[in-house]
C-alpha cells in the first residue's frame, strides 16, 4: 500500500439489518476508508480497539454484499477465490459473516446472489445458526443458574432476579431475531405479488423497545417458574433495570469503541 494508515472502527448491527451495515461500509468508502479486515476482540483487554479494519484510500463509491457461511477452511478458500474471480473482492470474514465489495458496474449488475432462493437460503442459514447457538447458550445458563453447584452454594444466585431476567432477555432477543429473519424471507417470497416497498425495516430503537418491553413483561412469569419461593414484587423491575444498566454500559464500552491506529 502507498498509504499504510489503517483505522479500526466497530459497528454494532442487528444481523437481519444488513442494509444498515452496508450503508455504514459505503459511507466509510465514500470518506476514503476501505474495509480490509476484522480485528478480533481480546477478551482480556477489551479496552483495546477491535472491529472492522479500514485502510486509507481514495474516496470512492463501492458496492458491498454480505454472505453467511460456516465451513471448513479449505472450502472457504475455494469460495473466496470464486468470489474474487467474479470481481467481488474479499473485505473481511468474522464469525462466518463474509463481506465482499466491488467497484465495477458490470459486477454489480450480475450481482452476488442471482436469484431470490439463494438469498432466502442465506437468511435460513443465519436463522438456524442463531437459534441453535441461542438455545444452547440459554440451556447452559439455565443449568448454571438453577441446577449447578454454583446456584446451590453461592448466595447471589438464589435471591436475585437478574438471572431469570437475563435468560428471559436472551430468549426474547433470539426469538425476535428469528422472527425478523422470517419477515425478510417472507418478503423475498412474496414481493412479486405485493407492492414494491411494502417491506419496511423497523428502526433500531423500535426493535430495542419491543425486546425490552417483552422482557419486562415476561420476567414475572419466568421468575415464578424458576424461583417458586419468590414473591412477585414491583421492585423486581428496579433490580432488573439496575443490573441491566451495567450491562448497557458494558456493551457501549465494548461495542461503541472508536479507535485509531497507525501501522
Amino acid at each position: 500500500m502507498n498509504n499504510p494508515e489503517t483505522r479500526i472502527q466497530n459497528f454494532t448491527w442487528l444481523l437481519w439489518k444488513e442494509d444498515a451495515f452496508i450503508g455504514f461500509l459505503k459511507s466509510m468508502a465514500a470518506k476514503g476508508w476501505v474495509l480490509c479486515g476484522f480485528k478480533r476482540p481480546n477478551l482480556l483487554m477489551l479496552w483495546q480497539p477491535y472491529g472492522y479494519i479500514f485502510r486509507k484510500d481514495e474516496p470512492q463509491e463501492l458496492e458491498f454484499r454480505m454472505d453467511f457461511r460456516r465451513d471448513k477452511k479449505e472450502n472457504l478458500g475455494d469460495y473466496i477465490q470464486l468470489c474474487t474471480d467474479t470481481g467481488w473482492h474479499h473485505g473481511c470474514t468474522f464469525k462466518g459473516i463474509h463481506i465482499f465489495y466491488t467497484q465495477e458496474k458490470t459486477t454489480v449488475k450480475a450481482d452476488f446472489f442471482s436469484d431470490d432462493e439463494s438469498k432466502i437460503a442465506k437468511y435460513k442459514r443465519l436463522q438456524k445458526h442463531l437459534l441453535v447457538t441461542g438455545s444452547l447458550g440459554i440451556l447452559t445458563m439455565y443449568y448454571l443458574f438453577f441446577h449447578s453447584w454454583l446456584s446451590q452454594h453461592v448466595s447471589g444466585f438464589q435471591d436475585n432476579v437478574f438471572m431469570p431476567g437475563l435468560i428471559v432477555f436472551l430468549a426474547v432477543f433470539f426469538l425476535y431475531s428469528g422472527w425478523q429473519f422470517h419477515r425478510n424471507i417472507h418478503h423475498l417470497r412474496h414481493k412479486a405479488v405485493k407492492k414494491e416497498n411494502s417491506h419496511k425495516q423497523w428502526s433500531f430503537w423500535f426493535d430495542v423497545a419491543i425486546v425490552i418491553t417483552l422482557t419486562l413483561a415476561l420476567i414475572p412469569a419466568f421468575g415464578f417458574y424458576l424461583m417458586p419461593e419468590f414473591k412477585w414484587r414491583w421492585d423486581w423491575y428496579f433490580t432488573q433495570a439496575f443490573f441491566m444498566s451495567f450491562w448497557v454500559v458494558f456493551m457501549v464500552l465494548t461495542f461503541g469503541w472508536v479507535g485509531r491506529r497507525k501501522s
Binding site: R65, D67, R69, Y79, L82, C83, D85, T86, W88, A110, D111, F112, F113, S114, D115, S118, A121, K122
Partner: peptide
C-alpha cells in the same frame, strides 16, 4: 450466476 448463488 452470482458467486453466492453458485457456491450454494
Amino acid at each position: 450466476l452470482g458467486p453466492g448463488t453458485l457456491y450454494g
